[in-house]
């Protein structure tokens, strides 16, 4: 992944423009800009996520929703800016963060059982070279129980339905016993039972004071599921409590056509990079 050279950057936003950042915020994003192949996909994201909320990240395709999560998890390089977890860089706070990647990102034909996938959520606690112990296996089975999948613990994962696979991924994140959960489209093409199971688990997490950020596609359910939304289209269009922010007007601004100037500038930067 090539980094955008500093020279090609739009001049950094003047500080003090964004909200005041709180050091106690679970996730605090400062002036984050991300580019793929020199083409910026996310500009100047600057926000705090409050503790103990279910946060929906919504926006059209290509708005940078997954990228925002991946940048927060240090999976894609940032051109500028930083993400702080409870006031410290993510690298020092990994143990506090759990991750549910998109279901399509892995090969479900892999020779592995459901419970073994869930145990991966505890690999970080095991450290190098050590195989999982019985205690880890118990924790994994408990996580499977919480998503209603304990009966499928020893099944090879390709024999599970799409919704069941999604629940396995959720169980793996639960096994991480984190404070903050990043989930990339956990509701994408799942059955109704899975959707209910996931929502129940998310509510449990919220009630226990955990913070959950979810990339979400279905606008119909946004106000029912989330008490906080980040509306994204290459930059943050709106951010705040769902009741205040999830309005017709903001939706129109988020989904209404492409941001011509911003995307043209991005294209230009990408072209310039290619010509070099």
């Amino acid at each position: 992944m090539s980094r955008l050279s500093q020279a090609a950057l739009p001049s950094a936003a003047p500080s003090g423009r964004g909200p005041e950042h709180s050091p106690s915020a679970p996730v605090s994003i400062h002036d984050l800009t991300v580019a793929y192949h020199r083409k910026p996909v996310l500009w100047d994201v600057d926000l705090d996520v409050p503790q103990g909320r279910l946060v929906g990240i919504i926006g059209p395709n290509g708005a940078g929703k997954s990228t925002l999560i991946k940048a927060a998890l240090d999976l894609v390089p940032c051109v500028s800016g930083e993400v702080l977890i409870y006031g410290l860089p993510f690298r020092q706070q990994r143990r506090l963060v759990a991750y549910v990647p998109q279901r399509e990102s892995v090969d479900w034909d892999f020779p592995i059982s459901a419970v073994e996938v869930v145990m991966m959520g505890r690999y970080g606690m095991m450290g190098w070279f050590r195989p999982p112990t019985r205690a880890h296996r118990r924790a994994a089975v408990e996580a499977l129980e919480r998503v209603g999948m304990a009966d499928f613990a020893d099944r090879q994962i390709s024999t599970l339905s799409g919704g069941q696979q999604q629940r396995i991924f959720l169980a793996r994140a639960l096994a991480q016993e984190a404070q903050i959960y990043f989930m990339d489209e956990p509701f994408a093409s799942v059955d109704a039972a899975t959707e209910r199971a996931i929502i129940a688990v998310l509510t449990e997490l919220k009630d226990a004071g955990r913070t959950v950020l979810v990339v979400h596609h279905d606008l119909q359910t946004v106000s029912r599921y989330f008490d906080h939304v980040i509306m994204l289209n290459m930059r943050v269009v709106a951010h705040g409590p769902t009741r205040e922010v999830f309005t017709e007007e903001n939706l129109a601004r988020t989904y209404g056509g492409r941001l011509t100037l911003l995307s043209e500038a991005a294209e230009a930067l990408a072209r310039e990079g290619r010509a070099v």
């Binding site: 240090d74 990994r94 991750y99 990647p101 991966m120």
Partner: peptide, 16 residues
């Protein structure tokens, strides 16, 4: 265990 994680889910491994 590390190689299994790498082969199955690289992004998750990196996040940890």
């Amino acid at each position: 265990k590390e190689l299994r994680l790498l082969c199955f889910d690289q992004a998750f491994a990196a996040s940890q």
